[in-house]
């Protein structure tokens, strides 16, 4: 079976539309860029101050003055712009980013997001996640459906929030779930899994889409 993270990245890539301005978070969300269709016209924004970021730099061809928000050397596309952090986050907060793809520790049925701290265990910091979650027009969460058998999609987040009522879509290796007013709408199931398996590893009530 394929790496679950690859399944997630490939599925999330289908949500991004041509012409959109997109910010991909660090880690799994960054992998989404590898699955964009050839010749797609998506403007990638990197919070360290790049608009129209290209693919990773080839070994031996790195320019250490051009990195992505994960610290890796990248290239830029024709028409790229470099900005300072105030402009970069102004773009994010100002609603000029159409879609952001973020990782998560937990998402709950109200679309609340927790992804920056596990008190006393892990404190990486929120980085740009609070800005992106609050500012982007659409928030897609990419994450594994569960962590060691424990659901990550829950009724109410147990970890400190990143932002409230912001998540629009959750893409996992098992399913695609939309956050709607009534709760969590199960739209797609990966054929490798059954509805029962998805329900068992989901900690919140799922509304089953009539189209499923």
């Amino acid at each position: 079976m394929k790496d679950p993270k690859e399944i997630i990245a490939a599925r999330a890539a289908k949500e991004l539309k041509d012409g959109e301005i997109v910010n991909l978070g660090i880690g799994l969300p960054t992998m989404v860029a590898d699955y964009l269709p050839e010749g797609s016209n998506i403007v990638l924004q990197s919070e360290n101050g790049i608009l129209n970021m290209g693919v990773s730099a080839k070994e031996g061809e790195e320019d250490f003055e051009i990195i992505n928000a994960g610290g890796k050397c990248v290239t830029v596309k024709s028409g790229a712009v470099f900005t300072d952090s105030a402009v970069s986050f102004g773009i994010i907060r100002g609603g000029h980013v159409d879609t952001t793809v973020l990782g998560a520790l937990e998402v709950d049925e109200k679309g609340n997001l927790s992804n920056w701290i596990i008190p006393n265990v892990l404190m990486p910091g929120m980085g740009g996640a609070m800005d992106l979650a609050a500012g982007a027009n659409k928030v897609i969460v990419t994450m594994l459906h569960s962590q060691k058998g424990k659901p990550k999609i829950v009724k109410k987040c147990s970890l400190p929030y990143t932002a409230l009522k912001v998540v629009n879509l959750i893409v996992t290796e098992m399913a695609v779930i939309e956050v709607v007013r009534e709760g969590l709408l199960l739209k797609e199931i990966n054929p490798d899994y059954t509805l029962q398996e998805v329900k068992k590893l989901t900690g919140a009530r799922l509304i089953i889409s009539p189209n499923l």
Partner: peptide, 27 residues
């Protein structure tokens, strides 16, 4: 939050008494 740190520094350097943002509300 990174955007907030940037804007707070900008406010500090450019004579502003602060700024208003929705980033971080409820957290």
């Amino acid at each position: 939050p990174l955007g907030t740190i940037a804007e707070r520094i900008r406010a500090g350097g450019f004579g502003l008494g602060g700024f208003l943002t929705t980033v971080g509300i409820g957290t």
